[in-house]
Amino acid sequence: MQNIIEFALEIDKLKQVTRKTRVLNSERYENSAEHSWQIALLAASLQSYAAEPVDINQVVMMLLVHDIGEIETGDTIVYAESGWEERKAHELACVTRIFGMLAPEQGARFLDLWKEFEAGETAEARFANAADRAMPVLLNLANHGQSWLENGIRHEQVVKRIAPPIREGCPALWEYLEGRLLDAKAKGWLG
């Protein structure tokens, strides 16, 4: 029991990791714990639109653990173009340490979920990655391009980074977003 409690308190630190997108109708930026919760529910809601049948419990669990490495690395905007290998190595070390706080079987299960998400090779991982890439876009669209404008993000950057994983994991979601991104560009929310 003590190990589980220590683990739960350790992952509370994810609430302190500030992301680049504001929550709706607020000047406050979201944190990584909120992001993980929201995309888990987004994925659960979109299950019928997945490119392939998925085990939604596997997807939700993947989304709940996928950003735990940010406890040590912080959040990096998805449109960053360098440093990903070093960052992912650091995240792996972090999640290995944190999941190692649990009983070996449980810790290994969470680590396997994290690795599955990162590899993106299963239907569940592809669908989870689609939800992960989509939610910041949905928030930016609802916030009139807030994060894109603050960080000088261009339409081409967004499409290059998010279109492939969303198309692969949830094609209907990409169809929904594609036209809205063109509208956002026309409104000046993207360079």
Score class of each variant (00 low, 15 high):
Val59His: 02
Gln157Ile: 06
Ala43Asn: 03
Gly152Ala: 07
Arg126Cys: 12
Tyr29Glu: 11
Val95Cys: 02
Met135Val: 14
Asp12Gly: 10
Ala186Trp: 03
Met135Gly: 03
Trp148Arg: 05
Leu177Phe: 11
Ala125Met: 05
Asn25Gln: 13
Arg28Tyr: 14
Ala93Leu: 13
Lys160Thr: 14
Ile77Pro: 08
Glu150Cys: 00
Phe99Leu: 02
Gln47Asp: 02
Gly69Asn: 03
Trp114Gly: 02
Phe127Arg: 05
Leu173Val: 10
Arg22Glu: 12
Ile77His: 15
Ala130His: 01
Ala80Met: 05
Ala125Asp: 06
Val17Ser: 01
Pro53Thr: 07
Tyr29Ser: 11
Leu111Met: 06
Arg109Glu: 12
Lys115Ala: 09
Glu70Met: 15
Ala142Glu: 13
Glu124Asn: 12
Tyr79Gly: 04
Ile56Arg: 01
Gly120Thr: 09
Asn25Ile: 01
Glu91Ile: 01
Tyr79Ser: 07
Gln47Glu: 10
Arg154Pro: 10
Thr18Lys: 09
His90Phe: 13
Glu121Lys: 15
Leu181Arg: 00
Thr76Ala: 07
Leu24Gln: 12
Gly100Pro: 07
Leu139Tyr: 15
Leu9Lys: 15
Leu92Gly: 00
Trp174Gly: 08
Ala50Met: 09
Leu113Met: 10
Cys170His: 02
Asp55Pro: 11
Glu105Ala: 12
Ala50His: 03
Phe7Cys: 07
Ile56Ala: 04
Leu177Ser: 03
Ala128Gly: 14
Ser36Tyr: 04
Ile5Ser: 09
Glu30Gln: 11
Asn25Thr: 12
Thr122Leu: 06
Asn140Leu: 04
Glu118Asp: 13
Phe7Trp: 06
Gly69Ile: 05
Leu139Cys: 07
Val23Asp: 04
Leu42Val: 01
His66Gly: 02
Met62Tyr: 05
Arg97Ser: 01
Gln58Met: 14
Ile11Ala: 04
Gly74Phe: 06
Glu81Thr: 14
Leu14Lys: 01
Ala43His: 02
Arg154Asn: 09
Pro104Met: 07
Ala130Tyr: 03
Glu118Gly: 03
Ala103Gln: 11
Ala130Asp: 07
Leu64Cys: 07
Gly179Lys: 04
Arg167Asp: 14
Leu111Gly: 00
Asn151Tyr: 13
Ala131Trp: 00
Ile39Asp: 08
Cys170Tyr: 01
Gln146Ser: 15
Arg133Glu: 15
Arg109Trp: 12
Leu64Tyr: 11
Phe7Glu: 02
Gly191Cys: 09
Val65Trp: 05
Ala131His: 01
Leu41Thr: 15
Asn129Arg: 15
Gln106Ala: 14
Trp189Asn: 02
Ile39Tyr: 03
Leu41Tyr: 09
Glu81Trp: 00
Pro164Tyr: 04
Arg19Lys: 12
Met1Glu: 10
Ala172Val: 14
Asp75Glu: 05
Cys94Met: 10
Ala163Ser: 13
Trp148Pro: 08
Arg126Ser: 12
Glu72Asn: 10
Cys170Asp: 01
Val59Lys: 01
Leu46Arg: 00
Arg22Pro: 02
Glu124Tyr: 09
Glu34Asp: 10
Ala134Pro: 01
Thr73Cys: 04
Leu14Trp: 06
Arg87Ile: 00
Lys20His: 15
His144Asn: 15
Ile71Gly: 00
Tyr49Asn: 10
Val137Arg: 04
Leu139Pro: 00
Asn31Leu: 13
Ala40Phe: 10
Val137Lys: 03
Met1Asp: 13
Arg133Gln: 15
Leu63Phe: 01
Asn129Thr: 10
Asp75Phe: 13
Asn143Leu: 09
Glu72Ala: 02
